[in-house]
Design a protein around this nucleic acid. Structure first.
Length: 798
RNA sequence: GGGCCGGUAGUCUAGUGGUUAUGACGCUGCCCUUACGAGGCAGAGGUCCCCGGUUCGAAUCCGGGCCGGCCCACCA
């Protein structure tokens, strides 16, 4: 059938995407006989609209999925939504004007749920518009259904993994110095820390030396921690302070006596070269206290306020305490000078509050002893691109303590433990149910240890990565359907951003290894970032966020998708979001549509016995393109093929092949034999049909429509084109470069002479290798006489 | 300080050890060529960051430098 419309319009997309959804076109068949290709998609957080980076990476993942279907896989490609944790709590606090700790837990959880209901599936709209072929758009628990990280089945699995790990003896509780975010009121992991430059004041404070009575000056940004000072150090090479070695410093205001020692941690050029070591101002202090085996004094409590150790500062917040103590020191003339400086401090990546170092009892999952195992697992997986593996290895190297998995929040998966009120014995229930210990009784009557009947339910919840790290287990029905899981684990592909390698990827590998002894994935695809048009990171504060829905409203999904493929290689680099270039992509769609429209003027026909030389050439080019494309697609590279397909279609097929073959395909004056004509028509369709199949994973709407209209079939149900070995081996006297050079030369001469392209050429001389396509040359360029010599020359009619 | 990536026309970008370096946007000119005027064709525009090396030959490979970006570590 012929294509009617003069151009592809974005409005054509809607009907196709609705049909896919209504027909459940991409549903996952659990009983399939095909090999399964499973994609562990990153669940986006629901409280914000999908941003352009997510949209781009999902579009790329969709290309992976669509391609795999075309080479015979049953593809597990579910959509998950992350709904646990801090972002929703913060949003609820803001929206309902409450503070988590000031309302009942019941009430707070209710408010979070209310808000989540409002968000519901709104954020998935963008994916739907973009034509992502998720298995399903309905929330459910079958393989391929949309899943939520806070649905009971999911939380149950999160708890089951805890129960298994507990029973394996891999989880323990300990009181340790840990990163504590006063804003979020919870311990956080190293992976959740970021750094920020903040202004601070460097205070030069006078200490007294007990033995000699002399004043020494120590510079500090944390004067409120004076009470926690345990030692004063100078660099061993620092001649100025050698005489202080072994003497005692007296901490001002508190009159605590602390030893003065040389230690390389002190840099002579910083401040006065003397440093007070506190517990704890930063991670250096923690290392130092550990190394010197000093007893820390913790002066900051869980609310970020000074406690009794701080004496007269008790009850003040850290910053208030700092101001107050500086005032007091000033009054007593103990501050020699103050310098303003910018200071890089650790902050909470979520609330952006300054981290404090506080000792609290937390649950830990052992990881230190498995570092080598995880490294070995990393070696077993294929990384795309290979260099991304280094991000993971670097992170594994830098892990210093076990993973603190408990958090003091409300809207997250509860830690399933009860404690006997009498003997405090922890009770971990059996698997099989979603537990909420803070509101439920345990499933036993009496403490297994002492027989007491009263229990205290655990109130803490899991670190959000503790539940995010089981996505491949959940989607492959771990513990719900062992047959299915055993058959399909490890998961085939983990696609994700480079910024969560140390969290999502690492924790997933760790937990899956501890639970299954296996690598979680066969392939890992790491993508970089989408930047704004100027190359800046998009962020709310800069106000440079581009909404992918707006982009698609303006141009349609297809230009966006084609842009995502052709723009660059996200595996290797960041790339910029440019409207110009998305618009440029839509021009390709117009071109492609019109090529298809031209080819559709002729009915598809069977391969004739003999193909002309020119047709053999274009089919050989096509097959080389198929070979390249298929190899690259298998390695998750859609960029290289998109560039090459576009170039072939536009610069070779349309500009040269079609121009040269038009006359023969129409054959209006019967200048060509029927077989020659059929050879042309066959080749035109051969190229269009196969290129359409190659483009189907990238631009699924337009290819669907073209294929349906012309060939009457669903392109997405077709096999990916394979190579015609004979066509590719064909020995031909002319190459693409020859043909392009010849046509361009003739067109240029006519142009320069101000003549129409149809005007007559009196004499064309050209190399003999063009002889086999002589007839096509003559009728394309209206040649009167042809001669074979070295070089190309064109003589026009005078 | 450690690691990774990049530097190609006014802007953005592809690319490969081998004639004349890809394309987009912008710019100039021409064209109702029966698939395409939201198009086609032609054209202008480049020390392919710098220096050195390997090579018959380097924008491409190697070393060094400069610049930019990102990640990690550290900063009293």
């Amino acid at each position: 059938m012929k294509l009617k419309e003069k151009r592809w319009k974005k409005e054509f997309e809607e009907e196709i995407r609705r049909m896919w959804r209504e027909k459940n076109e991409y549903r996952f068949d659990e009983n399939t006989k095909k090999p399964v290709f499973s994609i562990d998609t990153p669940p986006p957080y629901v409280n914000a609209p999908v941003h352009i980076g997510q949209a781009t990476t999902y579009v790329l993942m969709d290309m992976f999925a669509r391609f795999r279907r075309m080479i015979g896989y049953e593809v597990l490609f579910p959509l998950g939504l992350d709904r646990n944790g801090l972002p929703i709590e913060v949003a609820a606090e803001r929206k309902f004007g409450v503070k988590m700790n000031e309302v009942s837990r019941e009430r707070f959880v209710e408010l979070c749920k209310k808000l989540l209901e409002e968000y519901s599936m709104k954020s998935t709209e963008t994916f739907y518009i973009a034509g992502i072929s998720f298995n399903s758009w309905e929330i459910g628990t079958r393989a391929g259904d949309v899943y939520l990280t806070d649905m009971p089945e999911y939380r149950k699995l999160t708890q089951e993994t805890f129960i298994d790990l507990w029973n394996k003896g891999l989880i323990y509780e300990d009181v340790r110095i840990n990163n504590y975010c006063p804003g979020c009121r919870t311990t956080i992991a190293d992976a959740e820390i970021e750094y920020d430059e903040r202004p601070t004041v460097f205070n030069y404070v006078k200490f007294k030396v007990k033995e000699t009575g002399e004043d020494i000056v120590i510079a500090t940004t944390r004067p409120e921690l004076l009470c926690t000072c345990k030692m004063v150090v100078f660099n061993p090479s620092d001649e100025r302070y050698k005489h202080l070695n072994g003497k005692t410093a007296i901490v001002p205001l508190y009159n605590i006596e602390v030893p003065i020692r040389p230690h390389p941690i002190a840099k002579p050029e910083m401040g006065t070269g003397l440093e007070m070591m506190c517990s704890f101002g930063d991670t250096r202090d923690i290392q130092f206290f550990r190394e010197m085996d000093l007893q820390p004094v913790i002066a900051i409590d869980q609310n970020g306020k000074m406690n009794k150790h701080a004496g007269f500062l008790e009850g003040l917040e850290v910053l208030e305490a700092r101001e107050k103590i500086v005032e007091m020191l000033k009054e007593k003339g103990m501050i020699v000078k103050q310098e303003k400086m910018m200071h890089r401090i650790p902050i909470c990546e979520r609330s952006k509050d300054a981290i404090e170092f506080i000792a609290m009892p937390e649950y830990y999952l052992k990881q230190m002893e498995f570092k080598d195992k995880i490294r070995a697992i990393a070696d077993k997986m294929n990384f795309y691109s290979p260099k991304s593996k280094q991000i993971l290895l670097d992170w594994i190297d830098s892990i210093k303590i076990d993973w603190a998995i408990s958090r003091r929040r409300y809207y997250a998966t509860e830690i399933p433990v009860w404690y006997c009120k009498k003997c405090n014995h922890p009770y971990v229930p059996p698997k099989g149910k979603y537990y909420q210990p803070w509101r439920e009784r345990p499933p036993i009557e009496r403490c297994p240890k002492c027989g007491h009947k009263e229990f205290r339910g655990e109130e803490r919840v899991f670190d959000t990565w503790f539940d995010s790290s089981i996505t491949p287990l959940f989607i492959l029905k771990y513990s719900r359907d062992n047959n299915f899981f055993e058959k399909h684990f490890p998961c085939t592909l983990r696609p994700q951003g480079k910024e969560i390698v140390r969290t999502w990827l690492y924790y997933t590998l760790l937990k899956c290894y501890l639970l299954t002894n296996k690598q979680a994935f066969r392939d890992v695809w790491i993508n970089y970032h989408i930047l704004d048009e100027k190359g800046k990171k998009m962020s709310k504060s800069l106000g440079n966020i581009i909404d992918p829905q707006k982009v698609m409203e303006r141009y349609g999904a297809e230009p966006f998708r084609f842009w995502a493929a052709i723009e660059g290689n996200l595996e290797k680099t960041d790339f910029k979001c440019s409207f110009n270039r998305i618009e440029g992509a839509s021009k390709f769609l117009t071109k492609y549509w019109n090529i298809a429209r031209f080819v559709s003027l002729f009915d598809p026909i069977k391969k004739p016995k003999h193909l002309t030389e020119l047709d053999k050439w274009v089919i050989k080019e096509l097959n080389m393109l198929i070979k390249y494309t298929r190899e690259r697609y298998e390695r998750y590279d859609f960029h290289g093929p998109a560039v090459k397909i576009k170039h072939f279609l536009w610069e070779v097929f349309a500009s040269h092949y079609i121009e040269m073959v038009k006359n023969r395909a129409y054959n209006q004056d019967n200048k060509f034999s029927k077989e020659e004509q059929e050879s042309a028509i066959y080749a035109l369709h051969e190229v269009l049909e196969k290129v359409t199949r190659m483009l189907a994973p990238i631009i699924p709407f337009i290819t669907y429509r073209i294929y349906k209209d012309i060939y009457g079939k669903n392109v997405h149900k077709m096999q990916f084109p394979s190579i015609d070995k004979f066509a590719i081996k064909e020995e031909l006297s002319i190459s693409s470069n020859d043909i392009i050079a010849l046509n361009s030369a003739i067109w240029k001469v006519k142009k320069d002479a101000g003549m129409s392209l149809k005007s007559k050429v009196r004499l064309l001389t050209l190399p003999v290798k063009f002889k086999p396509i002589e007839k096509d040359i003559i009728f394309t360029h209206n040649i009167e006489k042809i001669e074979y010599k070295e070089g190309i020359s064109v003589k026009l009619e005078q």
